[in-house]
């Protein structure tokens, strides 16, 4: 028997998985927050900034995958939506379509808010100036008319994208670390946790609206998600410690990686958990603890994808 770590997918794919999960979860959270009138009101600024950030994340992430491809022209074969009929069993086919349509529907959902959102309302063409511009105005009207339908389409594609990042790795049968039901769940929890962290950064540093009730809600949910993530990581380690040599070797690799232990577990989960507990309980006051925790959660989210990819161990019978 010989044991080898995978080398086919490196940093660019880790960035793709991270930004894919983060971007999709940001879009999902802001649309849900607005559609269901959390805090009993609309959230145009949050939706616009969240959607713009999400589309940038998804575009950069997809760009990383594109760079990684061996034949860039052949990417057209997976951009065609009909690929879902010819390859319904391939998660990359689903993921590509989820990403594309999430960006499209997310953009349309944010469209009507461009005129009222802080930061875009004074812009020419898309802001208040759009009133004088026929086609843009008609598009915004159309999006407003079907806002709820567009919102649902955005949410479905966003959740699909988040789930896809874990399902993709789960479909590789030879690696115990990936081929188990827990991985998509861990990636989903991590994606929504990083998304809430990013949205909190937006709220505290960019939007700066009087939305304390919403911030408190996001802080509480993120605290729960970080706690759940710690539990899932523990379950993972416990699962891999016995049952297969591949899993055991993955744990050994992770256990001996400072980036995993200190970076992800320490500064990416435990420290943010403590900071968020302090902020939610009122023992730590001001913006700083939440902002620091959010930055650490984002770094931890990336490290999770990076080390999960790196630690894939194959067991070969030669």
């Amino acid at each position: 028997m010989s044991y080898e770590m995978q080398t086919a997918w490196g940093l660019s794919i880790a960035i793709y998985l991270f930004l894919g999960g983060l971007g999709a979860a940001v879009m999902g959270v802001v649309v849900i927050t607005d559609m269901f009138r959390i805090s009993n009101r609309e959230h145009p600024t949050l939706v616009v900034w969240g959607a713009i950030s999400s589309i940038i994340f998804l575009a950069v992430g997809s760009g990383m995958l594109f760079i990684h491809l061996l034949d860039h022209l052949a990417v057209l074969n997976v951009l065609n939506p009909l690929v879902l009929f010819t390859k319904p069993d391939a998660w990359i086919a689903w993921g590509t379509q989820f990403i594309i349509w999430m960006m499209v529907w997310g953009f349309f959902y944010a469209c009507p808010y461009l005129r009222s959102a802080k930061g875009t309302r004074d812009m020419p063409l898309v802001g208040n100036g759009a009133k004088e511009c026929g086609p843009v105005c008609k598009l915004m009207g159309l999006c407003q008319k079907y806002h709820r339908l567009i919102g649902w389409l955005t949410i479905i594609n966003a959740v699909g994208t988040v789930a896809y990042t874990g399902l993709l790795l789960q479909s590789f049968p030879a690696v115990a670390l990936w081929h188990n039901p827990g991985l998509p769940m861990l990636f989903m929890v991590s994606a929504f946790s990083t998304a809430l962290a990013f949205i909190l950064l937006l709220q505290y540093l960019v939007i700066k609206e009087p939305d304390q009730d919403l911030r408190r809600l996001f802080e509480r949910i993120d605290l729960g998600l970080v706690g759940l993530e710690i539990a899932l990581v523990f379950f993972f380690v416990n699962y891999m410690l016995s049952g297969s040599e591949s899993g055991l070797r993955s744990v050994e690799y992770l256990w001996n990686s400072w980036g995993w232990l200190l970076g992800f577990i320490g500064f990416g989960l435990i420290v943010p958990l403590m900071l968020e507990v302090g902020a939610v309980s009122g023992k730590l006051r001001g913006h700083l603890p939440v902002v620091v925790a959010a930055v650490l959660v984002l770094i931890g989210g990336f490290l999770l994808r990076h080390y999960t990819l790196m630690a894939g161990v194959y067991e070969y019978p030669w």
């Binding site: 080898e4 491809l69 061996l70 034949d71 990359i92 590789f172 049968p173």
Partner: peptide, 20 residues
């Protein structure tokens, strides 16, 4: 003609027989 070289198949193969 169809392969774009994402290399998902390289990771999926348990026998390490695919290469870029």
């Amino acid at each position: 003609a169809l392969c774009m070289g994402c290399q998902a198949c390289v990771l999926a193969c348990p026998y390490d027989v695919r290469y870029a």
